[in-house]
C-alpha cells in the first residue's frame, strides 16, 4: 500500500517537475547543466550531505525519540485547544468534497513538489549559493522542528475535535494517504508544523530569487499557501502550529543566509587537512624532542 502511494506521488511529482522546469527555468539554464553540473554538485555537496544526515537522524529518532519525549516531553494538546478553541473549524465553512480533495492533494502532492522543485531550479543557477542556502534551511527546519517534537507532545485537532471534523478529514476522505503521513510523522508531533515551515521557506526563497525566476514567485506563494491552509483544513495542525511554522521558516532562512558562504566547507576541509598534516609533523617532532 505504502509502496503504491509512494510510487504515485513520485510519478506525479516527476511529471510536474518536468513541466515546471520547462516553464519556469527555461531551456538555456537547463542546457547549461550539461556542462556545469559537476562543479556545481561539488560546491553544494556539503549542503546535500548535511540534509541527508539530518534526514537519517530523523529516521533514527523515530524510535529513540519516542522514549526521550516520553521522559522529557510536555503534553500540550489541551493547552493548544484551550488557547485557540475551534479556530481551525472555521474552514468548515468552505468544506465540500471537492475542496477536501483539493486540500488532500495539496497536503500530499503539492507539498512534495514544492520541496523538490526549488532544489532543481536553484541547481540550474550558475551561482550555487542559493541552492546551498536552501538545503541548509531545509536541514535547520528539520533539526529545530524535531527538537520541538521531542519536547512538545501534542495531538492535532483531528484527534481532539470529533464533531465537525468528518467532512474535512484527510483520512476519511482518502485513507490511503495515512500510510504516507504516518511514515513521515508521528501523530503526536504537531508543533511546529513542518509542512508550514518548509513551504514557507520555499516561498521566502522564491521571493529572494524573484529576479531569476519571476514567474515562480507568485506560483510558489500560492502553492505554499494552499499547503499551509490544508494542514488546518484537514485538522492535522492547530493554528498555533502554523504560526510557529511560519516563525521557524523565517528563522531558518535567516540562519541559512548567515551560515552559508560565511565560510566555505571545502576551504575548511582543506584547512583541517593542512592542520592535520602539520599536526602530524609537529607531533612526530615533539616525540623526537
Amino acid at each position: 500500500m505504502l509502496a503504491q502511494v509512494l510510487t504515485r506521488v513520485a510519478l506525479v511529482v516527476a511529471v510536474a517537475l518536468l513541466v515546471s522546469l520547462v516553464v519556469f527555468v527555461g531551456r538555456d539554464r537547463l542546457l547549461s547543466l550539461r556542462t556545469e553540473w559537476r562543479p556545481r554538485l561539488r560546491q553544494s555537496a556539503p549542503a546535500f550531505a548535511l540534509l541527508l544526515a539530518v534526514l537519517g537522524l530523523n529516521r533514527i529518532m523515530r524510535q529513540d525519540g519516542y522514549d526521550i519525549s516520553q521522559a522529557y516531553g510536555v503534553h500540550m494538546t489541551e493547552v493548544f485547544y484551550s488557547l485557540e478553541g475551534e479556530l481551525v473549524l472555521a474552514f468548515r465553512a468552505i468544506a465540500t468534497p471537492e475542496v477536501t480533495t483539493f486540500f488532500s492533494i495539496s497536503y500530499v502532492y503539492v507539498y512534495a513538489f514544492v520541496l523538490v522543485f526549488p532544489v532543481v531550479a536553484y541547481f540550474a543557477l550558475s551561482d550555487t549559493v542559493v541552492l546551498r542556502q536552501l538545503l541548509t534551511a531545509y536541514s535547520l527546519n528539520y533539526v529545530i522542528g524535531l527538537t520541538f517534537y521531542l519536547l512538545v507532545i501534542a495531538y492535532g485537532p483531528r484527534n481532539v475535535m470529533i464533531e465537525g471534523m468528518d467532512a474535512t478529514h484527510l483520512y476519511y476522505a482518502s485513507p490511503e494517504y495515512i500510510h504516507l503521513t504516518t511514515e513521515v510523522n508521528q501523530n503526536r508531533n504537531v508543533f511546529p508544523s513542518l509542512h508550514t515551515s518548509l513551504s514557507a521557506t520555499v516561498a521566502i526563497f522564491a521571493y529572494m530569487t524573484r529576479d531569476q525566476y519571476r514567474a515562480w514567485f507568485p506560483v510558489a506563494v500560492g502553492l505554499a499557501t494552499s499547503v499551509i491552509i490544508s494542514t488546518m483544513y484537514l485538522g492535522i495542525h492547530w493554528a498555533i502550529d502554523v504560526v510557529a511554522g511560519l516563525i521557524l521558516a523565517v528563522v531558518c532562512v535567516a540562519l541559512a543566509k548567515r551560515l552559508v558562504g560565511r565560510w566555505s566547507l571545502l576551504a575548511l576541509l582543506e584547512r583541517v587537512r593542512a592542520a592535520g598534516r602539520s599536526e602530524a609533523t609537529s607531533g612526530s617532532g615533539r616525540k623526537q624532542g
Binding site: R158, N159, V160, I162, H169, N187, R188, G235
Partner: peptide, 15 residues
Amino acid sequence: LPAADGDRESAEIAR
C-alpha cells in the same frame, strides 16, 4: 484516547 488515531468513541464520551 486520541479521537482519530485511537478510540473515537472513548474520546467523544470524554468530551
